[in-house]
């Protein structure tokens, strides 16, 4: 599973990075990041008083092999995806610059190394791949002007992101919960996972209050 900076930030900020250790111990797969995410989440914040502890937690996870830094030659793919994504929607003739290099790198790496599972809390990238029409409508409402689509680039984006499955840190934590991550909490474990999901949300994971309460009431506190 390839991890984006946004998910790692949400997980470390809410002190749930150990959910990755927990899952890594039980399953064969790897949590992968490109060097740019390592820079954003480890090297860059290492010197920021407010965030250095999060960087240290991630550095430790890398040192201990829980997260693996994978470099690949993705320059061309990054450019292709970035150009397509940033020439998809138009506001009165002006293309909207939606994605930045970091986000397109995640998609490019996924294609290059053949890993279809992406952990990403950031909303726009996910919506662009999963539901571009809703994103267009949202942009139209927010920017109060008509937003048109370049149909050719829409097909290209669909092709470039075909088969990618997106997950958020909220789902990863729920999975860890199902596998016993909160077992130590005893009778409090249902409350603990609910509270933890809200904490993730407040840390920036793009999940709605409604989504959390609906899932908890139907699957955790039935």
């Amino acid at each position: 599973m390839i991890c984006d900076a946004s998910s790692l930030i949400s997980l470390t900020d809410s002190c749930f990075i150990h959910a990755l250790y927990f899952l890594k111990r039980r399953y064969k797969g790897n949590f992968i990041i490109p060097p740019s995410v390592e820079y954003e989440c480890v090297q860059h914040p290492m010197h920021m008083k407010m965030h250095s502890i999060h960087a240290i937690r991630l550095k430790r996870a890398i040192n201990e092999g829980v997260i693996e830094v994978v470099d690949a030659d993705i320059g061309k793919k990054v450019q292709e995806i970035r150009w397509t994504a940033n020439n998809l929607f138009y506001a009165q003739g002006t293309p909207l610059r939606l994605l930045q290099e970091g986000e397109t790198e995640m998609l490019a790496l996924s294609r290059e190394i053949g890993v279809d599972n992406l952990l990403i809390d950031e909303r726009t990238t996910r919506m662009l791949a999963e539901d571009p029409e809703s994103l267009r409508q949202h942009l139209e409402e927010e920017l109060r002007r008509p937003i048109t689509v370049d149909e050719e680039n829409l097909s290209s984006i669909a092709r470039l992101t075909k088969g990618i499955r997106f997950f958020r840190s909220s789902e990863l934590l729920l999975l860890a919960y199902e596998k016993g991550y909160f077992a130590d909490y005893g009778k409090l474990k249902e409350d603990a996972i609910e509270a933890s999901l809200y904490k993730l949300k407040y840390s920036g994971c793009a999940v709605g209050f409604g989504e959390i309460s609906d899932y908890i009431s139907r699957n955790v506190k039935e």
């Binding site: 900020d13 994971c205 989504e211």
Partner: peptide
């Protein structure tokens, strides 16, 4: 900084104002 932006966004209702197509159940 992305970190600060995520924290700030997390305190807003922006993720409730736009419903995502794929539900948490499907992702799970």
């Amino acid at each position: 900084d992305k970190r600060e932006l995520l924290l700030y966004a997390g305190q807003t209702m922006m993720f409730d104002r736009l419903k995502e197509k794929k539900s948490i159940h499907e992702r799970m």
